[in-house]
């Protein structure tokens, strides 16, 4: 499962007051790769993630997922892609407040009319060390438990790509590590993960890191380490100054 982005630009704002947020970004990922995107606030990380995942249409350039062009993709096809291959994990826990934890996990299966194996879901949640009740609503769960539900949803639907936007941003340090470890395990098992983060420590544990600034990829670091990423960030700052 590959993501291919070619010269992606994104312009926002009204006529006469337009700002180009992304300036022609090229990107490729492959199955089982854990890619992190880092950069200062306002550098265009989230916009890039949204363009890559089909949540937002790029102004120009193309994005392909598994050779399927996302530009002008029909609403029905993108919906199918979202319930079969792509999963999202956001900082603001993208769970539906109306559904219980269990219903949130199995929602993509229900939408695509697949059979639900309750026992398997309970086993999965045990393996994720989920302590709360699956009948509880998201509002009754802690931040860490909510992110576990989002991860369980990705696992249950056997997502091939996970787009994560600051997935541990609102969590305490223990939950942060548990969630990150889960994502790492998923990548090791063949899932492609694209994660936007501010946390250099976490980015250092991914397979590849992109340093973004002002809508451009300033550096690309394979097998990143913390010192490497810090120096890449500093060099980016110097280059801008």
């Amino acid at each position: 499962m590959k993501i291919m982005a070619n010269k992606v630009t994104k312009v926002m704002g009204n006529k006469g007051n337009q700002i180009e947020i992304l300036h022609g970004i090229d990107l490729q990922t492959s199955s089982g790769e854990f890619l992190s995107i880092i950069g200062p606030s306002g550098s265009g990380k989230t916009t890039l993630l949204k363009c890559l995942s089909g949540l937002v249409q790029p102004t120009s350039g193309t994005v392909k997922i598994d050779n399927q062009l996302l530009n002008n993709i029909s609403e029905r096809k993108i919906a199918k892609l979202r319930r079969t291959k792509i999963s999202y994990i956001f900082q603001s826990y993208n769970l539906l407040p109306a559904l219980s934890a269990f219903d949130n996990i199995v929602l993509p299966l229900r939408l695509s009319r697949q059979r639900i194996n309750k026992t398997k879901i309970y086993q999965l949640m045990n393996s994720l060390n989920f302590k709360a009740d699956l009948k509880q609503l998201p509002a009754e769960l802690s931040g860490g438990e909510q992110q576990k539900v989002a991860i369980a949803r990705a696992l249950t639907m056997k997502a091939e790509i996970i787009f994560a936007d600051e997935p541990t941003g609102a969590l305490d340090s223990t939950s942060r590590q548990i969630i990150f470890d889960q994502l790492r395990q998923l990548a090791d098992s063949g899932v492609c993960i694209v994660m936007v983060t501010h946390d250099i420590g976490q980015a250092a544990q991914t397979d590849r890191a992109l340093v973004l600034n002002d809508g451009q990829v300033m550096a690309e670091v394979n097998h990143p380490t913390e010192p490497l990423l810090i120096s890449a960030m500093n060099e980016t700052k110097k280059a801008i100054i």
């Binding site: 949540l55 609403e75 029905r76 919906a79 199918k80 892609l81 979202r82 319930r83 079969t84 999202y88 993208n94 539906l96 407040p97 109306a98 929602l107 993509p108 939408l111 695509s112 949803r153």
Partner: peptide, 14 residues
């Protein structure tokens, strides 16, 4: 909430 339904794979008909 409805945007989230769409992110999670619900199509227009659903």
């Amino acid at each position: 909430e409805y945007r989230m339904w769409m992110f999670l794979g619900a199509d227009s008909r659903q």
